[in-house]
């Protein structure tokens, strides 16, 4: 997947996501959680806990992780990997910020939906 083939989809303003908070986006049928950390990094991962499908975007954000609201699994926002003793992984998506707007890189999704 080359850089050129990523399509950047504008999602909204940086400030639409509260610090240490999250928002959900719906892209076709997929739900993606957007998270903003204490140090103002934005991450996007599939909004579906690898454990039992809980909506991660409803969890508490701390460091670069989110704790799932259903059973407290801790998921890395960077890699999508479950932390600690739990095993599992969710998809993560590239994000870029330009002019205080958030863009999601969507080439893979695009291929799938095409």
């Amino acid at each position: 997947m080359t850089e050129q083939r990523i399509k950047w989809l504008e999602l909204g303003a940086f400030d639409d996501i509260p610090k240490l908070g999250s928002r959900r986006i719906e892209l076709d049928k997929m739900k993606i959680g957007l998270f903003r950390t204490a140090s103002d990094k934005i991450f996007a991962i599939e909004d579906k806990c690898p454990h039992l499908g809980g909506p991660l975007s409803e969890g508490i954000v701390h460091d670069n992780c989110v704790t799932c609201p259903l059973h407290n699994w801790v998921i890395s926002l960077e890699s999508g990997e479950a932390q600690g003793a739990d095993k599992g992984c969710v998809r993560s998506f590239p994000i870029k910020i330009a002019n205080h707007r958030i863009f999601l890189g969507v080439s893979k999704l695009h291929e799938e939906s095409a």
Partner: peptide, 18 residues
């Protein structure tokens, strides 16, 4: 409410940013 809801139709007409 979700930040954005993108319909399947729009997904195929995305603007190429770079």
């Amino acid at each position: 409410m979700p930040l954005t809801v993108v319909s399947p139709a729009k997904v195929t007409h995305l603007e190429v940013v770079r």
